[in-house]
Amino acid sequence: MSRRTVLITGASAGIGAAMARVYAAEGWDLILTARREAALDALADETRRIGANVTVLTADLAEPGAPEALVAQITARGLTVDGLVNNAGFSLTTGFLATKPEQHAGSIRVMLTAPVELSRLLLPGMVGRRFGRILNVASIAGLMPATGGDTLYGPIKSFLIKASQGLRLEMQGTGVHVTALCPGYTFTEFHDINGSRADVTSAYPAWMWMTAEAVARAGYDAVEANRPRVIPGWRNRLLSIIPKLLPNGVALSIIAGHARRLKRL
């Protein structure tokens, strides 16, 4: 059987890079995309040593039309996408009013619009071939009450979880699997980029954190098993349940305390 190919967005670091290593180890070829070409090239060299054929395509998914342009580049190279990992994302922790409208628009395009558009562009081919995998990297934040500071992040991730569930139902019987991956705190560059590294490190103990490698493995195994959602780590699964058992006002107060510890309110 010919090798499968997976497109991974936000592949230059963190969970995206870890997903590339997992897929390469499992015998998949890779299409890696992100904004940072040098980091992608280094990851491509690493995964080629595992035996993967790797294509690097730089793209900024915050730009309108980026998903269509990316798929056009893939098609022009004669590549077939059998798997899609919608991983690109970031959070804006300066507060809703202190964040520029174009930054809000960019975050929505990267984490909400791009996954929807890429899925819509690539799914017809997957359905036609009777094989496909879509792994949407959401967050435990999408299962928790909303918080201030990074006001849109949780709602966007909640959308991604629900959209994954609905799409999975539509794809039943087609050979296409759809899964939402909902990690908690993960050791990546994510918190360095949004400037919250010192705050989250001091606010939360080491036992609450997982490695990107463990999260990536959990995601890969879940989408192969066609599970609708996976929350890596029993502690994160417990944390996602507790707010649902509390009155809404109490849960929101707890989350507000979380935001204050991170200096977001």
Rank of each mutant, 00 (worst) to 15 (best):
L112D: 09
R49G: 11
S196N: 14
P124L: 08
L246Y: 04
G51E: 00
K244M: 15
H104T: 10
L238Y: 01
V215H: 03
W207F: 12
I193N: 14
L246A: 10
G65S: 06
N136Y: 02
V137C: 02
L97H: 10
A251T: 03
G219F: 02
K157S: 04
I255Q: 15
W28C: 01
A13V: 12
I140W: 09
G173R: 05
G27S: 05
M171C: 08
S139T: 01
D29F: 02
E224N: 11
G51I: 00
E26D: 13
V116E: 09
L143G: 07
M208I: 07
N226K: 09
I74T: 08
H258A: 11
S107P: 10
I50Y: 09
G175V: 03
R4Q: 08
P67C: 07
P205S: 14
E213G: 03
F96Q: 11
S158P: 10
R4A: 05
G106A: 15
H191L: 06
N136F: 03
K100Q: 14
G125Q: 03
P232C: 05
W28V: 01
D60C: 07
I31R: 04
T188M: 04
P115Q: 05
M210P: 10
G154D: 02
G65H: 07
N53Q: 13
A44M: 00
E224P: 03
Y220W: 11
V22N: 01
T174W: 01
R235A: 11
R237C: 03
R36E: 13
T201N: 13
I140Y: 08
Y204N: 08
Y185P: 10
A25W: 01
V215F: 06
A59S: 13
E68S: 06
L265F: 13
G106F: 12
S253V: 03
N87K: 05
I15F: 12
G14C: 08
G95T: 07
A146W: 00
T151C: 10
L32D: 05
D199V: 06
L57Q: 04
G173Y: 03
D192V: 14
S2P: 15
G89L: 01
G132W: 00
V71G: 08
S240E: 08
I193Q: 15
G233M: 07
D41L: 15
A163D: 15
G78E: 07
R227G: 11
E37D: 14
H177V: 00
I8L: 09
L79P: 08
W209T: 01
P243T: 04
S2F: 12
R48K: 13
A20K: 07
L112V: 08
G106D: 14
E189D: 15
M171A: 06
E68A: 12
H191E: 11
N86W: 03
D192F: 13
E170S: 11
K100L: 14
V200R: 12
T94V: 11
L70D: 10
G148Q: 14
L40R: 05
F96D: 11
P228L: 07
A17F: 00
L79D: 05
V81A: 04
Q165E: 15
A214M: 10
A11Q: 09
M208L: 14
F131L: 08
S164D: 00
G27Y: 00
L265Y: 13
W209P: 04
A38T: 11
